[in-house]
Simulated assay, not measured.
Amino acid sequence: MNDSLPLRAPAYVRHFDKLVDLALAAITVVVFVAAALATFVQTPWDGAIQLALVLAVLVLFRRRWPMLVLLLSVAAIFVYHLASWSPAGWIWPASVAYFTAAATPRVRWVAAVGIAQLIYSAIDARWIIDRNLTRYLLHTVGEGLLLAILIGAGLAYAATLRWQERRHSAD
Rank of each mutant, 00 (worst) to 15 (best):
I77R: 00
I77A: 03
I77S: 00
I77Y: 00
I77Q: 00
I77E: 01
I77W: 00
F78N: 07
F78E: 10
V79N: 01
V79K: 01
V79I: 12
V79E: 05
Y80V: 07
Y80L: 10
Y80D: 01
H81A: 11
H81V: 11
L82W: 15
L82P: 14
L82V: 15
A83G: 13
S84D: 09
S84A: 10
S84F: 09
S84W: 10
W85V: 14
W85T: 12
W85Y: 07
W85Q: 11
S86G: 13
S86E: 06
P87T: 11
A88P: 07
A88Y: 06
A88K: 05
G89P: 02
G89H: 02
G89Y: 02
G89A: 03
G89C: 02
W90C: 08
I91K: 01
I91L: 08
I91W: 03
W92E: 03
W92K: 15
P93D: 01
P93M: 00
P93C: 03
P93G: 01
A94K: 02
A94Y: 04
A94I: 03
A94T: 03
S95F: 13
S95R: 14
S95W: 09
S95D: 03
S95P: 11
V96H: 07
A97Y: 06
A97F: 06
A97E: 07
A97S: 07
Y98T: 12
Y98W: 14
Y98M: 13
Y98Q: 09
Y98P: 09
Y98N: 06
Y98A: 04
F99T: 01
F99E: 02
T100M: 08
T100L: 03
A101K: 04
A101Y: 07
A101D: 03
A101N: 06
A101S: 03
A102R: 05
A102L: 07
A102K: 01
A102M: 10
A102E: 03
A103G: 12
A103W: 11
A103C: 15
A103P: 10
A103H: 08
T104S: 11
T104K: 01
T104V: 13
T104G: 09
T104N: 07
T104F: 04
P105F: 02
P105S: 10
R106G: 14
R106I: 13
R106W: 09
R106N: 14
R106T: 14
V107W: 09
V107H: 02
V107R: 04
V107P: 13
V107I: 08
V107C: 06
R108A: 14
R108F: 12
W109I: 13
V110R: 04
A111I: 14
A111E: 09
A111R: 07
A111L: 14
A112N: 04
A112M: 15
A112E: 02
A112I: 15
A112F: 15
V113K: 04
V113L: 04
V113A: 06
G114Q: 06
I115D: 00
I115N: 00
I115Q: 00
I115M: 00
I115K: 00
I115E: 00
I115R: 00
A116V: 06
A116L: 09
A116Y: 01
A116K: 03
A116D: 02
A116S: 11
Q117K: 14
